[in-house]
C-alpha cells in the first residue's frame, strides 16, 4: 500500500472505529425494536400509519408496510437515519483529506514531499474510500446479523444490495466533501455543500416526486439513485449504482486539476 494511503488510514483509524461502533449501536437498537413492534400490531398497522399526514409519510419513504421485515428495515435503517449518520461520517472524514489539514497548516509540509499534487489527492481519496468500505463491511455484517436475530426474514442478498447502495451514496458524499475541500480549501464550505445538496436532494426525492414543478430535480439528487431502485425489495439497481459511481469519478476528475492549480494555505 502506498505510504500516504497507509498514513492517512492511520490518521482516520480512531474516527473509523468510533463511527463503526456508533453505527452498529444504532443498528442494534433500532432493529431490536422490530421484535416488540411486530407483536404489537396496533402501532404498525396500515390504518394506524394512514393517520399520519401524507407529506410526513412521503418524507419517511411512504411507510407502506412497516409491519413486514423489509418495510421496517427500509423505513428505519435504509431510508433516512442510516444514510444520514453514515453520510456525516463520510463528510467528516472527507474533510480531513485536504481542507482540515490545510486550515490547520499541517498540509504544507505534506505538500512539499516529493509527491505530485494529483497523486497526493488520489492517495488521500483511496484512504477515504478504503476506510468507508471497512465501515460499510462491518455494518453490513452487523445489520444482516441483527435482522436475522430479529426474525425479519430479509434475504442476505437484498440487504447486501441495499447496503451497497448505502456505501456508494456515502462514498459520493465523502468524495464531494474531499473535492470541495481540495478545490477551495475551506472545510465549512465543503460541509455546507454536502449538507445542502444532501438534504435538498432527499426532500426532492421523497416529497417532491409528486410535485411536477420540482420532480425533474430528482435527476440531480444523489439520493434518487440510492432510493429509487428499492434494492431491499427489487434487488440490484445496477444503472442507478453506476450513476453514483460515475458521479463520484467525475467529482474526483474535476477536483484533481483544481487542486493541482491553486495556491495552498492562502
Amino acid at each position: 500500500m502506498p505510504t500516504l494511503v497507509r498514513k492517512s488510514l492511520r490518521e482516520y483509524r480512531r474516527a473509523l472505529v468510533g463511527w463503526t461502533i456508533g453505527l452498529c449501536a444504532f443498528l442494534a437498537m433500532y432493529i431490536s425494536f422490530y421484535g416488540g413492534m411486530r407483536d404489537n400490531t396496533e402501532t404498525l398497522s396500515a390504518q394506524a400509519i394512514a393517520k399520519y399526514p401524507g407529506a410526513f409519510r412521503d418524507l419517511l419513504g411512504g411507510l407502506s408496510d412497516l409491519a413486514s421485515g423489509r418495510g421496517y428495515l427500509q423505513a428505519v435503517v435504509y431510508q433516512l437515519l442510516g444514510p444520514l449518520l453514515f453520510t456525516m461520517c463520510a463528510a467528516i472524514l472527507g474533510n480531513r483529506a485536504v481542507a482540515v489539514p490545510e486550515e490547520s497548516k499541517t498540509l504544507e509540509l505534506t505538500l512539499t514531499l516529493p509527491i505530485g499534487r494529483r497523486r497526493l489527492l488520489l492517495e488521500r481519496w483511496a484512504a477515504l474510500a478504503l476506510g468507508l468500505l471497512g465501515v460499510a463491511l462491518v455494518t453490513l455484517l452487523f445489520a444482516a446479523g441483527a435482522a436475522s436475530a430479529a426474525h425479519m426474514d430479509v434475504p442476505f442478498g437484498d440487504i447486501l444490495a441495499a447496503h451497497t447502495g448505502l456505501f456508494l451514496l456515502v462514498l459520493f458524499f465523502g468524495t464531494l466533501t474531499l473535492c470541495v475541500g481540495a478545490a477551495l480549501g475551506r472545510k465549512q464550505v465543503a460541509l455546507a455543500v454536502v449538507g445542502v445538496w444532501g438534504v435538498a436532494g432527499y426532500i426532492v426525492e421523497t416529497m417532491g416526486r409528486n410535485l411536477d414543478a420540482i420532480a425533474w430535480l430528482r435527476w440531480i439528487s444523489p439520493v434518487h439513485y440510492y432510493l429509487d431502485g428499492r434494492p431491499l425489495y427489487q434487488g440490484w439497481p445496477y444503472g442507478d449504482y453506476l450513476v453514483l459511481l460515475g458521479a463520484t469519478a467525475v467529482l474526483l476528475l474535476t477536483a484533481l486539476p483544481a487542486f493541482e492549480r491553486r495556491d495552498v494555505g492562502v
Binding site: T3, L4, K7, R10, E11, R14, S104, K105, T106, E108, L109, T112, L113, P114, I115
Partner: peptide, 27 residues
C-alpha cells in the same frame, strides 16, 4: 530539498518519531 515552514504546525496524537519516519519513507 529540506524544508522548514515558517508557520510549522504539528498536531494530533501521532508520536513525533512516527511522523518523522513517515516523512523519511516518502523521501
Amino acid at each position: 530539498i529540506g524544508y522548514l515552514p515558517g508557520e510549522l504546525a504539528l498536531e494530533g496524537r501521532e508520536r513525533a518519531r512516527d511522523y518523522l519516519q513517515f516523512l523519511a519513507d516518502v523521501r
